[in-house]
């Protein structure tokens, strides 16, 4: 506590016990440091997601009601997930783009498990707003995909960043097809 400011009250240098006491004091101080570290950890850890929060971290989505060309937004871990049933034309357009032109180069194939189903976390990689483009009436940006109204990021039909401040493509969450018409996200 006050140790660092108090120099004079230390014992006279060169006293015979000085080394032994220094060693003792040093180990005691080291112990105190370990103790403080061990006390701090549970507090920090308690702010991480609790076990019930982690247990809720998967969401199942039924794909049957989503017609071709339509999209739904589902909630997963408190965030929107875009699930889009793409038309053949949208798939073709997305695959025609040369990967070298992209800011965050990824092929469309690497972003989907089944060609028509695009599943992405609907959170702009710039500063976390939700891009427009899910509803048929939404503005879909210059690349007919999604458009983030906060700071003007344009994503294409594969959710890849094409224009604007966002650094990376819209993230693809971990998901599995339980049946051809049902997926589990997370």
């Amino acid at each position: 506590m006050a140790d660092m400011a108090t120099q004079p009250s230390a014992p006279p240098a060169g006293a015979p016990q000085a080394t032994k006491r220094d060693f003792l004091a040093l180990s005691a101080t080291a112990f105190a440091a370990v103790g403080v570290g061990a006390i701090v950890w549970p507090f920090i850890s308690s702010m991480n997601p609790a076990r019930d929060v982690l247990a809720m971290a998967s969401t199942e989505v039924d794909l049957t009601p989503i017609a071709t060309g339509m999209a739904v937004t589902v909630m997963w871990r408190g965030k929107p997930v875009f699930v889009r049933n793409r038309t053949a034309e949208e798939i073709a357009t997305a695959r025609a783009v040369p990967v070298s032109e992209l800011r965050d180069p990824q092929t469309d194939q690497s972003r989907v498990q089944r060609d028509n189903w695009l599943v992405m976390v609907g959170v702009c990689t710039h500063l976390g707003c939700v891009p427009l483009g899910q509803r048929p009436t939404d503005v879909r940006g210059d690349y007919s995909g999604w458009f983030c109204p906060c700071h003007g990021s344009h994503y294409d039909g594969s959710g890849r960043i094409r224009k604007g401040p966002a650094p990376t493509n819209l993230a693809v969450p971990q998901y599995t097809f339980l049946t051809p018409t049902q997926i589990r996200i997370g």
Binding site: P11, K20, R21, L24, S27, A28
Partner: peptide, 14 residues
């Protein structure tokens, strides 16, 4: 317990 012994040792010395 170990920390206590150390602290007590330092205290005795001082």
């Amino acid at each position: 317990a170990i920390a206590g012994l150390l602290a007590y040792g330092v205290k005795r010395k001082i």
